[in-house]
Simulated assay, not measured.
Amino acid sequence: MTTHPPHLAGAGSALPGEPVDNAALSAALGVSAEWIELFIGTRTRHFARDLVTGEVRRSLADLCAQAAEEAMANGGVEAADIEFLVLGTATPDHLMPTTASQVADLLGLDQLPTYQLQSGCAGAVQALDLARHLIGSGEFGCGLVIGGDVCTKHLDLRRDLSAAAPSDLVNGVLFGDGAGAAVLTAEPHGAAVALLRTLNRCTGLGRSPGQIIDWFGLADRDEDRQALTEDYKAIEESVPVMAAEILWELLDTLGWAADDVDFLLPPQLSGRMTRQIAEHLALPSAHEISCVALTGNNGNALPFLQIEQLLPKMGSGQKALAVAVESSKWIKAGFALEKR
């Protein structure tokens, strides 16, 4: 087992179609554009499905493969260098075959281990955690880590949301689609940013889930229950508190002071919630790296979209902390980076 940390060599992303602004979303769903702007604070998002025709234009596998190709190009590695692939998602294209194996096929990868982690906003960090341990085992020198979600599969374009309660409206306007990826290497390569630590812990013992995404089989797909439900009030109350706990646990584990952090990657729930959480975390000397106001909440893509923004900005000796909270069963997640 190696004792030095793995490194992020490069990152990439894929967002389907042109940005959809609040006016277009308002026209499609019958929701006030002003309400979206004030309550959600997200200005644009990208959809893999056409809002007018309902046609699916891009699959999750398509988006993940595009993001992975960009990450490899930015990291200066070839497909032949990739020795494993890990994908985190809450919205796979199919139950079988896994989207991870489909992405490998699209990339021309064969005879290598592929892993798919079924999780929400923490899935990207779980994928990084697994990849860090695979590299640390000494068996692998280079791998692809991918996160992505296509949330519009849960957006019913036939439904008029104009009279829906705010808690129900959230599910229609919060999410977007997309994918992100990073190349992890055993030795410094490309961007050469060290992945020092990952945090991944389920903390929801005895607590009701904050978010549920259902799977419908042939026997129950015609039931009236929604496929996607969430307790947005519980999320608003809990996520800022959990984010602060994650931040201070990482700082304590690393032996860093708050002033040591040059970049903060806060949880990307919505434009409004992200602003509030960043203020709550109170790291005034850290530069915030956020994207959700322009991309929508595209789940497991978000940490990789943040990493893609971050890598070109980091100078020698600079440090970054990322915080992610998954409300499904209240999972704490995060990671620490340093440019050596």
Rank of each mutant, 00 (worst) to 15 (best):
A23V: 14
L8A: 12
L51W: 03
L15M: 14
E70V: 08
E37F: 05
T44C: 12
A73Q: 00
A65H: 01
S13M: 14
G17W: 02
A9R: 01
S59K: 03
T42A: 13
E55K: 05
S59G: 06
V20Y: 04
P6L: 15
G12A: 15
D21N: 15
R43C: 10
L60H: 04
H46C: 08
L25M: 15
L15N: 09
D50A: 11
A33C: 07
V20A: 14
L38Q: 06
A71Q: 00
S32I: 12
A61W: 01
R57L: 15
H46I: 07
N74Y: 01
L51D: 10
A48G: 11
A68L: 05
T53E: 07
D50E: 11
L25P: 04
T53I: 04
R57Y: 06
H46P: 03
A68Y: 01
A67N: 02
A23P: 00
L25V: 15
T42P: 00
E37C: 06
L60N: 07
L60Y: 03
G41E: 05
E69M: 06
R58Y: 10
A11T: 13
E18Q: 11
P19R: 05
E18H: 11
G54P: 00
A68K: 01
A33E: 04
L51Q: 09
A14H: 05
N74F: 02
S59L: 08
G41N: 04
M72P: 00
A65F: 01
G30K: 07
V31C: 10
S59A: 10
P16M: 14
R45G: 12
P19T: 14
Q66D: 12
G30N: 10
E37G: 05
S59R: 03
R49M: 15
A14S: 15
L29P: 09
R45V: 13
P16R: 04
D21Q: 11
L8H: 05
A48R: 01
G17D: 10
E55R: 08
G41R: 02
S26A: 15
R45P: 01
E70N: 01
A14L: 09
P16A: 15
A24G: 13
A27D: 12
P16D: 13
R58M: 10
S13C: 14
V56G: 04
E37W: 02
S32E: 07
G17A: 14
S26E: 13
T53L: 07
W35P: 00
A33M: 06
A73K: 00
S32P: 00
T53Q: 07
C64H: 04
H46W: 04
A23E: 13
S59F: 07
R45C: 13
F47R: 03
L38V: 11
A65D: 03
E18M: 13
D50L: 02
H7I: 07
N22I: 11
A23I: 13
A11I: 08
S13F: 14
D62I: 03
L60R: 01
R43H: 11
A9W: 01
F47L: 15
V20D: 07
F47E: 05
N74D: 00
V52C: 12
V52T: 14
V31H: 05
E70A: 13
R43N: 08
V20R: 02
L38M: 07
S26I: 14
D21I: 04
S32R: 02
H46T: 09
G10T: 10
Q66V: 12
